[in-house]
Amino acid sequence: MAHTKIFRNGHSQAVRIPAELAFKNWEMELVIERHGDELHIRPAQRRMGNILGKFAGFSSDFMAKGRGDNQEDEREAI
């Protein structure tokens, strides 16, 4: 856990993010959400990582037979 302080930047409050917690990319938008007394900071758009590489790892016959026998139970009417 790292400790830091808030400071004034113009008419806004600002917080210094310690180097060990800093984001690697400086050119990104962040979302700040308040949850009670806590502020949660996260990237505005989450990256999907190497999703195309993961898809490429599937065999050519993946799901060739479909999902198989997938019967759903009857539900009570609403």
Score class of each variant (00 low, 15 high):
Gly68Asp: 09
Glu72Cys: 00
Met48Asn: 12
Glu76Leu: 08
Ile78Thr: 05
Leu52Val: 03
Asn50Trp: 04
Glu74Gly: 06
Arg47Ile: 14
Gly53Cys: 05
Phe58Lys: 15
Phe58Glu: 15
Glu76Thr: 13
Phe58Ser: 13
Asp61Ser: 14
Arg42Ala: 13
Phe62Ile: 00
Glu72Thr: 02
Asn50Tyr: 13
Asp73Cys: 02
Glu76Val: 12
Gly49Glu: 12
Arg47Val: 14
Asn70Asp: 11
Gly66Arg: 03
Lys54Thr: 10
Leu52Lys: 13
Phe55Cys: 14
Gly53Val: 01
Lys54Tyr: 07
Phe55Lys: 07
Met48Gln: 09
Gln45Pro: 00
Gly66Thr: 09
Ala56Cys: 02
Gln45Leu: 04
Phe62Glu: 00
Leu52Ala: 13
Phe62Trp: 00
Glu76Gln: 08
Glu76Pro: 11
Met48Phe: 09
Gln71Cys: 00
Gly53Gln: 10
Pro43His: 02
Arg67Thr: 12
Met48Cys: 04
Ala44Phe: 14
Phe55Ile: 14
Met63Glu: 09
Ala44Val: 01
Gly57Cys: 11
Asp69Trp: 00
Asp73Val: 06
Gly57Phe: 06
Met48Asp: 13
Gly57Lys: 14
Glu76Ile: 09
Asp61Phe: 08
Phe58Asp: 14
Gly57Thr: 10
Ala56Pro: 00
Ala44Asp: 01
Ile51Asn: 03
Gln71Arg: 00
Asp61Cys: 04
Lys65Gly: 12
Gln71Ala: 01
Phe55Ser: 08
Met48Gly: 14
Glu74Arg: 07
Gly68His: 08
Ser60Asn: 06
Asp73Leu: 08
Gly68Pro: 06
Ser60Leu: 02
Leu52Glu: 14
Gln45Ile: 03
Phe62Tyr: 04
Arg46Thr: 04
Gly53Ile: 02
Gln45Ser: 04
Arg75Ser: 10
Glu72Pro: 01
Asp73Asn: 06
Gly57Trp: 03
Lys54His: 11
Ile41Gly: 13
Lys54Glu: 15
Ser59Cys: 01
Glu74Leu: 01
Lys65Asp: 11
Arg42Glu: 12
Ala64Thr: 00
Met63Trp: 04
Ser60Val: 04
Glu76Lys: 10
Gly49Gln: 09
Ala44Gln: 11
Ser59Arg: 12
Ala77Thr: 04
Met63Leu: 14
Asn70Gly: 10
Ser59Ala: 13
Ala77Phe: 13
Asp73Met: 06
Phe58Val: 15
Gln71Pro: 03
Phe55Thr: 05
Arg75Asp: 13
Arg46His: 09
Phe55Met: 15
Met63Cys: 08
Arg47Gly: 15
Met63Val: 07
Gly49His: 11
Gln45Glu: 03
Lys54Arg: 15
Asn70Phe: 01
Ser60Ile: 01
Gly53Lys: 07
Asn70Leu: 07
Gly53His: 05
Leu52Met: 12
Lys54Leu: 12
Ile51Gly: 01
Ala56Val: 04
Arg46Ala: 08
Gly66Pro: 05
Lys65Phe: 04
Arg47Tyr: 14
Gly68Leu: 06
Asn70Thr: 13
Glu72Asp: 01
Asp61Gln: 13
Pro43Phe: 02
Asp61Asn: 15
Lys54Trp: 06
Gly49Tyr: 09
Asp73Ser: 04
Asp69Leu: 01
Arg46Gln: 11
Lys65Leu: 07
